[in-house]
């Protein structure tokens, strides 16, 4: 499924957070949205996912989602958002129950997504027993269970340490390779953006506007940490953002 954002603007009170954003997310591609903190990239993602109303403009989905898709636009959150009182399998079954999927049919789906995220041995564990990386794997498994047409990833790796991040990036590439999904991936980490994005959109800070959209043609599997081409790209992205990141850093929290 393809998504387009058309002339989207949004204000909180007097402050314009997003101004005239237009973007296209082609089917089967990952669009990375980067920008300094406070540029409204998470807000934009929530609007794409229908959790917030934009003041102006609209978000369009093109074409019907596949018939076996339970939840076309599916989020993966930074803080995992797992129910602490449900086991790994229970957290996944939560999103199936409302669609009337129970019993052996649910078990088949849960087994499949746990295998894809290498969690099969942990189906009965509680979230508090899992490491951060494992928790995010559970959240990704839960997202895969509803067979999403578009994945909306809101800084999914930002709460994890560098090594876990590296491992999960490889996992995400593997998942995309197996079955290419459409995704918007919000991050402030430029290394993640150049590793996972087919396109990288750079947002400016307050008001958030698209500064540049970069296409990266290297296939995802051929990208590795330390690739000079990607390093150069990352440096270019940083040069676009550096001044604003500095300004964001020096601002008082409540203005």
């Amino acid at each position: 499924m393809e998504l387009t954002i058309e002339n989207l603007s949004h204000r909180y009170g007097d402050m314009t957070v997003l101004q005239d954003i237009s973007l296209r997310v082609p089917a089967g591609q990952i669009l990375c949205l980067v920008g300094p903190s406070g540029c409204g990239k998470s807000t934009l993602l929530r609007m794409v996912g229908g959790l917030e109303y934009p003041e102006l403009g609209r978000v369009l989905q093109h074409g019907a989602p596949p018939s076996d898709c339970l939840n076309p636009l599916t989020f993966v959150f930074q803080d995992f958002a797992l129910l602490p009182w449900r086991s790994v399998a229970g957290n996944i079954s939560l999103v199936l129950e409302d669609h009337g999927i129970r019993g052996s049919k649910a078990k088949a789906i849960i087994d499949d997504v746990l295998a894809r995220t290498k969690l099969s041995d942990f189906r009965d564990a509680l979230p508090r027993q899992l490491s951060g990386g494992m928790k995010q794997r559970v959240a990704i498994a839960r997202a895969l269970a509803v067979n999403p047409a578009v994945m909306l990833l809101d800084e999914p790796l930002s709460a994890l340490d560098a090594q876990t991040r590296e491992l999960l990036m490889e996992d995400l590439v593997g998942l995309w390779q197996r079955q290419s999904f459409t995704a918007i991936y919000v991050t402030h980490n430029l290394a993640e953006a150049v590793r996972l994005g087919h396109k990288v959109a750079v947002l400016s800070r307050r008001p958030g506007q698209i500064r540049e959209v970069i296409d990266i043609t290297t296939p995802l599997t051929d990208r590795a940490a330390g690739d000079p081409e990607l390093e150069a790209l990352q440096a270019h992205l940083w040069s676009l953002m550096r001044e604003e990141a500095l300004a964001a850093d020096q601002e008082l929290v409540d203005g």
């Binding site: 996912g49 339970l70 939840n71 989020f75 959150f77 958002a81 939560l94 999103v95 409302d98 839960r142």
Partner: peptide
């Protein structure tokens, strides 16, 4: 929000 985002 998570529940809403999964259409519960």
């Amino acid at each position: 929000r998570m529940g809403q985002s999964f259409g519960l």
